[in-house]
Computed example of a mutant assay.
Amino acid sequence: MTSSILVDRRDGWILLTLNRPDRLNSFNDEMHRALAAALDEAGNDEGCRAVLIAGAGRGFCAGQDLSDRVGKDGPPDLGYTIETFYNPLVRRIRALRKPVVCAVNGVAAGAGANIAFACDIVLAARSARFIQSFAKIGLVPDSGGTFFLPRLIGDARARALALTAEPLAAEKAEEWGLIWKVLDDDKLMAEAEALAAHFATQPTQGLAYVKEALNASATNDLDTQLDLERDLQRKAGRTPDYAEGVKAFMEKRPASFTGRAK
Score class of each variant (00 low, 15 high):
Thr146Lys: 14
Lys136Leu: 13
Ile137Val: 15
Asp142Lys: 02
Phe117His: 09
Pro141Trp: 06
Phe134Ser: 14
Ile121Met: 06
Lys136Met: 10
Ala128Gly: 02
Asp142Gln: 09
Gly112Thr: 00
Gly145Cys: 07
Ser127Arg: 10
Ile153Ser: 08
Lys136Glu: 13
Ile131Pro: 04
Ala128His: 07
Leu139Gly: 14
Leu139Trp: 14
Gly144Met: 07
Ser133Phe: 03
Ala125Arg: 07
Thr146Val: 13
Gly145Asp: 07
Ala116Glu: 01
Arg129Val: 08
Pro150Lys: 12
Arg129Cys: 00
Ile131Phe: 06
Arg126Thr: 01
Arg151Ile: 06
Ala128Thr: 01
Ala135Lys: 12
Ala135Met: 07
Ala113Val: 00
Ala135Glu: 12
Ala116Pro: 02
Val140His: 13
Ala111Arg: 08
Gly144Trp: 01
Ala116Asn: 07
Lys136Thr: 12
Ile121Pro: 01
Ala113Leu: 13
Ile131Val: 15
Leu123Cys: 05
Leu123Gly: 03
Ser143Ile: 00
Gln132Thr: 12
Ser133Tyr: 06
Asp142Asn: 10
Arg151His: 14
Thr146Glu: 15
Ala118His: 02
Lys136Pro: 01
Ala124Thr: 05
Ala118Leu: 02
Ala124Gly: 05
Ile131Cys: 02
Asp142Met: 08
Gly154Trp: 13
Ile131Leu: 13
Asp142Arg: 01
Arg126Val: 01
Leu149Asn: 12
Gly145Lys: 05
Cys119Arg: 00
Asn114His: 14
Arg129Ser: 09
Asp155Glu: 15
Ser143Glu: 05
Asp155Gly: 09
Val122Asp: 00
Val122Glu: 03
Ile137Glu: 09
Ala128Val: 07
Val122Ser: 04
Arg151Thr: 09
Ile153Arg: 11
Gly154Arg: 06
Ala124Glu: 03
Ala135Gln: 10
Val140Met: 13
Ala113Asp: 04
Ala128Phe: 03
Gly138Thr: 02
Ala124Met: 06
Ile137Asn: 11
Ala111Gln: 10
Ile121Phe: 09
